[in-house]
Amino acid sequence: MRVAFVLDGAPAELEAGEGEMLVDALRAAGRLSVRETCGIGVCGACAVIVDDEPVSACLMLAAQVDGRSVTTVEGLPDDDPVLQAFTQAHAAQCGWCTPGMVLTVKAMLADDPQIDRERAAEGLGGNLCRCGSYSRILDAVQLAAELTLKED
């Protein structure tokens, strides 16, 4: 079926195959920052923001985003405080999980701009990093919070 939606701020259309998941549709559309690891919604590597909430693109049918807005990390501006914070905090090893982390942190900070480390760790519970970069990712959350506050 034909799916019309907004992708990273621009109107987009795609032809969703039978039972095609959003992760596959977005990758076919060139959004290679959206990655499949677990296929069961537990790892966060395929996280995208639909309307205002991060979701697992591996469990959402492409058909479900008809008429909605999808944001990937590729749609964020260079001066995005979370992107900047992850860069400055060296919060990545292989980089596979990083886009999902970034989007999750964006949503977390939108709800809780002064989030502490413990709540941030809880909020990142659904994002796996097998390289084990968690401590620096939590540093990045703190830094992103500071940069966001400065921006406002």
Binding site: E74, D78, Q84, A91, C94, G95, W96
Partner: peptide, 15 residues
């Protein structure tokens, strides 16, 4: 600061 390509999702893997 130039964004780390890992944060931007710009790294290209075998996949």
């Amino acid at each position: 600061m130039r964004v780390d390509p890992r944060a931007r999702g710009a790294v290209r893997y075998s996949v």
